[in-house]
Amino acid sequence: MNHNDPEILDRLDARFPGTLERITTVDQPTILVSKDMILALFEQVKNTEGYTMCLDVAAVDNFPAQPRFELVYHLYHPTKFARLRVKSRVGVDEQMPSATGIWPGTNWPEREAFDLFGIRFAGHPQMTRIYLPEDWEGHPLRKDYPLTGNRVD
């Protein structure tokens, strides 16, 4: 059972005409937005629509597609229990705007995306590795990072 609100997509479309791409999924309303627009969209979704929780930030490596990475934000409305998924794409040498100014709780998951995927977030207060040691080479969750094997120097 879910309480999702598919009409939010129409309202967001009216607010940001021509910039949102709807994606059909089995579970919740999903939109794809360019990374330049994403902070404006988040402001709107949080302050006007009431999606005050960002439950998760997940990164996906779509290697060899361009732009390579996809960031997936799972947003939650704590009184209507509605969910919304916002996705955005970012290339290897590009920076993603950090959502920490809007949801402070995205601090660690963004650091995690940096640590494991090598995605940099502009405006993040502490863009350092979170799990792996500082001197670790590479980003393990990238698709071109081997699962096992000995390092050969």
Binding site: T25, V26, Q28, L55, V60, V72, H74, R85
Partner: peptide, 20 residues
């Protein structure tokens, strides 16, 4: 093919999986 998110109420809070 597709993506899905499912959360449940774990002992510590929302335990969720996002699968692609």
């Amino acid at each position: 093919r597709g993506e899905v998110y499912q959360g449940v109420e774990g002992p510590r809070g929302e335990m969720g999986f996002y699968l692609v």
